[in-house]
Each structure stands twice: as C-alpha cells, then as structure tokens.
Design a protein around this nucleic acid. Structure first.
Lengths: 158, 158
DNA sequence: GCTAGATAGTTTCACGTGCAACTATCTAAG
DNA sequence: CTTAGATAGTTGCACGTGAAACTATCTAGC
C-alpha cells in the first residue's frame, strides 16, 4: 500500500507555510492600518510602479480576482489612500495612483515588511536564500505563474 | 523611497504558488471524488497512520481549524469513507479510521497526487529538489511550524 | 461525591472570496 | 451609422472558514 506523509507533501507544506507567513505579516502590520491583503496588493503595485495603473492591470499582476481588487480599490478610495484618474482614451477604465496619504502609508509599510521577510529568511544562508528563490522561480515558471509586467501590459492591451 | 517588487516578495510568491498548486491538485483529482481539501487532509492523516486518530489530533497534525475538521469528518462519515469508534476511556473523543471504501479511495488518490507532486517538481534537479525541501524545512522550523506527530500526541495528551 | 475548570467536538455567526450576471463603454464588421 | 461582440469595472449570490458560544464529558481540588 502506497502511503503519503502529508507533512512531507509539497503542496501541503506550501499551503501551510503560505498561510502562516501571510497571517504573521497581515496580523502584525497590515491589520494595524486596517488594510487587508488585497488592499496591500493594490498599494504595493501602485507604489512600485511610477505610472498610474488600471484595476485590470493590478488584477493580472497580482493574480487576484478582479472583484476582489474592485472591493479593495473601493475601500482604499474611501480612506483616500488612492485616487482615480479618468482615462480620456477609454472611459471604461480608471487609472489608479497613490495619494500623498497613501504614499506615506506605503513608505511606512515597506521597510517593516521587508524586515519581516528578511527575518523569515534569516534561517537560511545567503547561498541558500538565493537557491531557494531560484528554485521557487523555476516552479513558478513551470506552472506558468510568471507574469512579467510586459506580459500583463500585453494582455491588458489585448 | 524604498520600493518593493511584489513579484519578488517571498510572502506573495508563496501565497500565489500555494494557491495555484492547491487548485491544480484539487481541481483535477480531489474534486473528481467530491472531496475538498479539508476532507483530503483527514483522509491523508488516517491513511498514513495505522491507528485510528481523534479529530483533535488530525486538526493539530494538519494545522487545520477544528471546526473545519469537524465539518470534513461529518461529510466523510456521511459517504461512509471513514467511521467513528467510541473511545471507552474518554467519551468526549471519537477515534476515526478509514472504512474499506475510504481505503480504496485513499489508494486510488495517493499515486495520482504523488505523481502530480513529482510533475510539479520535475523542473528541478534531484539536488535542487533536496535543497528546496531542506530550505523549506528550515523556514518551517524557524516559524515553529514543524509539528511532529510526537508533539501532536503530547499536545493532544495535554 | 461536588464543584470549577479544562477539553473534544459541534454549531452559529460574520466575513471574505470566486463566480456569474450586469452596466457602461469600446471596437470591428457590414 | 448600426450592430454584435469584447472589455473594464461593479454587484448579488453561494459557499467555505475562523472565532466564539455551546454541549457533553473528564479531571482536580476540596
């Protein structure tokens, strides 16, 4: 009889680890500002890029369902952390960007989160960290998860 | 201004990868039998161990909320894939075990899932796979995620 | 042997999310 | 110009999940 140790089964380990990491992060910092994971993803995308982005673009970049992004955007708008700019060329689409308030929030959040990430990886040597990231990249690629911003733009454009 | 590329941020990558792997697995095989992830976790735990386990034990092993396990157990019982054995020593607790039907299901599922896992990791060399698993183990350990069956038993016992 | 607190498991409730339907707008074909 | 189909974004709905309350049972202290 073939058996399977769940604790050594990669899908389970990934799921467990992702859940733990996510709650560790959102619990300590994100929740503090009353923003949840989807809102954080919107902020992170807008903060990282220079140009304003459409909701569609954010949805594809972050691989988050458009309705989830829509609700996150609504919430961020309500708290004036982002703002919408009408797109003259296509009035279905809105360009989103951080407000001054949103930028401050972003700049407060980033160092903390990066620090947390480093904390989490501090159990690995520099070499191990690099290899781990590379392996992750290969798996992502094989699952067709690698969405470059170029591809997203291309997709968004079509 | 410090920036953060979400696509290179480990927590995001883990979350995305875990979600993708999970749906790939559950979509193709688990859904086929009408069992969801929590039910699969119960089956996997019961199938892997020889002795019947309590719901509590499964909850701790799989790090899944006890109410979720409770619902999964109810569903599995309904379809006669597992059965309950009264515990004479402690009548609050029920011991769970696979039925013959459940065992057949388990034995059908395991090879497929293991194959899927290998598929997923086929983009890595043997060495890379080993290193990846080791790194994952270190991160799990640093987050105190490593729940050995011994610890679970100890916890369950107290 | 009673009582207070702990524990196993269930159930209720609130909430976040994906899907599908919907509105508004754009584009291409005739 | 009109119409059919595509696309951006929103909303209603169904569902799964975690927290907390609840029931039944166990254990320790008196």
């Amino acid at each position: 009889m073939t058996r399977l140790d769940l604790l050594k089964f990669m899908p389970f380990r990934l799921s467990r680890l992702a859940a733990e990491v996510s709650t560790a992060l959102s619990g300590e910092y994100i929740e503090q500002y009353g923003i949840d994971v989807p809102q954080w993803r919107v902020l992170a995308t807008l903060g990282f890029r220079e140009e304003p982005c459409s909701a569609q673009f954010i949805s594809q970049c972050t691989r988050t369902h458009k309705s989830t992004i829509s609700r996150a955007v609504t919430e961020l708008l309500k708290h004036k952390r982002i703002e919408r700019v009408e797109n003259e060329d296509d009035r279905r689409e809105f360009r989103l960007q951080l407000t001054a308030k949103g930028t401050r929030l972003y700049e407060e959040l980033i160092p903390r989160l990066l620090h947390r990430e480093q904390d989490m990886l501090s159990c690995l040597s520099a070499r191990e960290r690099k290899d781990f990231a590379t392996a992750l990249g290969k798996i992502e690629a094989s699952l067709d998860l690698v969405q470059t911003s170029q591809q997203a733009k291309a997709k968004a454009a079509y």
